[in-house]
Design a protein around this nucleic acid. Structure first.
Lengths: 181, 181
DNA sequence: TGGCGATGTCAACACGTGTTGGCCTACAGT
DNA sequence: ACTGTAGGCCAACACGTGTTGACATCGCCA
């Protein structure tokens, strides 16, 4: 056989992630994804059931936060933004979530879950007053997602043009304050 | 005649703004908008030409920033976030821009223009080193748009649940630093 | 060699969309 | 009372979409 089914599945998934990331859910068509993967649209249905199934597979993303509580306390802000920038640039799933979560309530719900679980549990171990943990996690989320929005999605020139180090220097203290002050 | 054409135009526009704000561009259908306005879809075409024309009319939005340079210098951060929250809650156009700009490049370009012109010119009069004005405006945009994203679009529970005063108290200093430090 | 399952293609269906043109209806002016 | 016109409706078109089922092809195994 020319290709194993796993290869094709992977090719479809890769094409899907690219399309979903750049076009969002609605404008990413099964036909376009199949064309990118070099196969017939019906193969997508065979392997992923339907468009929703394909999207679910493409949007399976993990923030992969390290344990900030293990770091020197005064460096957590910097560590958080550094990790987040890394994560954003290596994983198209981030873009998919943001692009689609804004118009699709189901994806928004998923993002709420992800941020509550991952950022929330992380701040819980960091914050002195545990009752404040969700609030502080939320504040950090606004700054960190706002940066992603302006830099990677909207591409506002001054933000897109900032160097990685500039971002860390400016946002690090902000996050530090949100998390530990 | 029962209705003047201006009335109908206004009814269509109001329905369109609501739909575009809650559904984005693609999922807001002409048929749904027309149904909300209580008229036939073809009337929309008569008055606005096509869907793009209707959207252009619905997405005509102005940030209406006051002149922060006229305020006491140490209060500009607080003033900025206060004004932005007001603006967001009274004008559906904000939601329209954010919901659609994320997937539509033309709208993103429009947002770049709006923020560069309005936030940019505002900070230019505020900042000591004029070369830093765009950077500082961009930083402020990340925090302010990130808040809008998390509170009004994604509705992350801890952020959506914050009181107006809490937001001002937390984000005011951040914006103050971005703009004037 | 013959058959079988896996991989892939093709054409088509059903549906919702933006958009169009023709028709109707009720009021204002004469 | 008659007519013109502005406001409104209806049915339909052309198109792109997700999705389906029947058919083809290739390589392994008995």
């Amino acid at each position: 056989m020319r290709r194993t089914s796993e290869d094709t599945k992977a090719a479809i998934l890769a094409a899907a992630r690219e399309r979903f990331a750049s076009d969002g859910y609605q404008r990413a068509t099964i036909r376009a994804i199949a064309a990118d993967a070099g196969i017939d649209p019906s193969m997508v249905m065979r392997y992923y059931g339907n468009k929703d199934g394909l999207f679910a597979a493409a949007a399976d993303v993990d923030l992969r936060f390290p344990d900030l509580a293990a770091l020197p306390r005064h460096t957590v802000g910097e560590a958080l933004i550094t990790h987040f920038l890394d994560r954003w640039e290596e994983d198209e799933g981030m873009m998919i979530l943001l692009r689609t979560g804004v118009t699709d309530e189901a994806v928004a719900e998923r993002m709420r879950g992800i941020f509550a679980a991952q950022l929330g549990s992380l701040t819980a171990r960091l914050v002195t007053d545990p009752a404040q943990a969700p609030l502080r996690a939320g504040l950090a989320a606004t700054q960190v997602l706002g940066m992603a929005l302006c830099r990677y999605v909207l591409r506002l020139p001054p933000v897109a043009g900032m160097s990685r180090q500039e971002i860390i220097d400016w946002l690090g203290p902000t996050l530090q304050r949100y998390l530990t002050d």
